[in-house]
Computed example of a mutant assay.
Amino acid sequence: MAHTGWSVFSFDGIGTTWEISTPEQLPEEVRAGLLGVVEDYDRSYSRFRDDSLVAPLAREPGTVTLPAGAGELERLFKKLYRLSDGTMTPLIGGSLEHLGYGADYALRPLGHPVPAPRWEDALVWNGTEISASVPVVLDIGAAGKGQLVDLLASVLRGAGTTEFLVDASGDMLHSGAEPLGVGLEHPYDPTQAIGVVELHDGALCASAANRRAWGDGLHHVLDGATGRPVETVVATWTMATTAMEADALATALFMVDPKVLEREFEFSWLMVYSDGHAAYSAGFEGTLFS
Rank of each mutant, 00 (worst) to 15 (best):
V149Y: 02
V149N: 01
D150T: 14
L151S: 11
L151N: 10
L151I: 07
L151D: 08
L151C: 08
L152M: 12
A153Q: 08
A153Y: 12
S154Y: 08
S154K: 14
L156I: 03
R157F: 00
G158W: 10
G158S: 05
G160V: 02
T161P: 10
T161I: 15
T162C: 10
T162G: 12
E163L: 03
E163D: 14
E163Y: 05
F164Y: 14
L165Y: 02
L165F: 02
V166A: 03
V166S: 00
V166Q: 01
D167Y: 05
A168S: 14
S169L: 00
S169D: 08
S169N: 07
S169P: 02
G170K: 04
G170N: 09
G170R: 05
G170P: 06
D171R: 04
D171P: 09
D171A: 05
D171K: 14
H174A: 11
H174L: 12
S175H: 08
G176M: 05
G176Q: 02
A177Y: 06
A177F: 00
L180C: 00
L180M: 09
L180G: 01
G181A: 15
G181T: 15
G181H: 13
V182R: 03
V182F: 03
V182D: 08
G183K: 13
L184P: 01
E185C: 10
E185Q: 15
H186S: 13
H186E: 00
H186A: 12
P187Y: 00
P187R: 03
D189M: 01
D189I: 00
P190Q: 09
Q192P: 04
A193N: 15
A193Q: 12
A193Y: 09
